[in-house]
Design a protein around this nucleic acid. Structure first.
Ligand code: FES
Ligand code: FES
Lengths: 151, 151
DNA sequence: TATATTTAAGACATAAGACTCTTTATTCTT
DNA sequence: AAGAATAAAGAGTCTTATGTCTTAAATATA
């Protein structure tokens, strides 16, 4: 798997929030129910995004989470790095402890070309862009058999 | 991590064998010592490659493993699929249970472009090509602090 | 045939990731 | 002030990946 489950959940949750930006805060309970994943687990994940200043949170009635910055300025790459670290964009494909042009492994040349493209695509893909496409094209944020949840 | 550790080990081991093709069989013990990984673990991994007809094995004195086909005909993709399955080249980036153009997730368009390129690169990169480059350019198969092992 | 060498197989152990539960802290509403 | 709603924090559990160990099977050599 490219991304950890934790990271998958983080991206889906931030997209859900981006789709509901008109509201002040979106409760985590609502997100977890709409995306079909554990409330407590999602809470832990979003705590990290809050600590990383990607989201804001607010306790108490009418509380929840919101994007800390305009959705146009938050990239998918940023979320991936916040949750999974920069390994995907910097690590060795063969799992060696360093990846560098000076001491490349056999797959270094092949991998870095693809990796740089992946990084560029993720860096320029923002939550705002994806939220627009979700709205306009009906892209799914959950499994098909649970799509009724997404409302 | 893109590939599992198991898959990393498999690729490194097959490359080691490809570098020693002049010999009939290469003992797994020798491979594990040169690559700095567990003999028993590597044995299990290479068993899978043997079952998948990518390698041959032979028991007893002067036994070991060898490539089942010419190194020119074995691609990295084939090894990745044998060990990790086809998930990397077919699965949803967001971890949803299906990935299809008909019901795409928000990252589908971005990911499939990169994924198809990764698949193409891996499919056309053979053990023979990589072994040549290892020989000619001194690419490393092990960590730097263990590179003396690789002889 | 006896012994050494090597892979095959499977049980077992450890570590990491994924998820659950309980308690605490904060804020709103009444 | 009291109670309800919500996130934060942390302990605990379950599952999967990784790694280890022991025994069996096959083969060569003497
Ligand atoms: S050194 Fe292995 S991918 Fe760069
Ligand atoms: S549906 Fe998610 S990547 Fe294709």
């Amino acid at each position: 798997m490219i991304l950890s489950k934790t990271c998958d959940h983080a991206i889906r949750a931030t997209l859900y929030v981006a789709l509901h930006q008109e509201r002040n805060y979106v409760p985590i309970r609502e997100i977890s129910e709409h995306l079909g994943l554990s409330f407590h687990f999602l809470t832990k994940i979003l705590q990290v995004l809050t600590q990383q200043k990607i989201m804001n949170s607010f306790k108490g009635p009418n509380g929840g989470v919101s994007l800390a910055r305009p959705a146009q300025t938050i990239s998918i790459k940023e979320i991936v790095v916040a949750i999974d670290g920069k390994g995907l964009f910097a690590g060795c494909m063969l799992g060696l402890d360093t990846c560098s042009d000076e001491h490349p492994c056999p797959l270094h040349q092949q991998w870095t070309v693809v990796r740089d493209q992946l990084e560029a695509v993720f860096a320029q893909t923002t939550l705002a862009y994806l939220a627009d496409r979700i709205r306009n094209e009906g892209l799914r944020l959950a499994n098909l058999d649970a799509s009724s949840l997404v409302s």
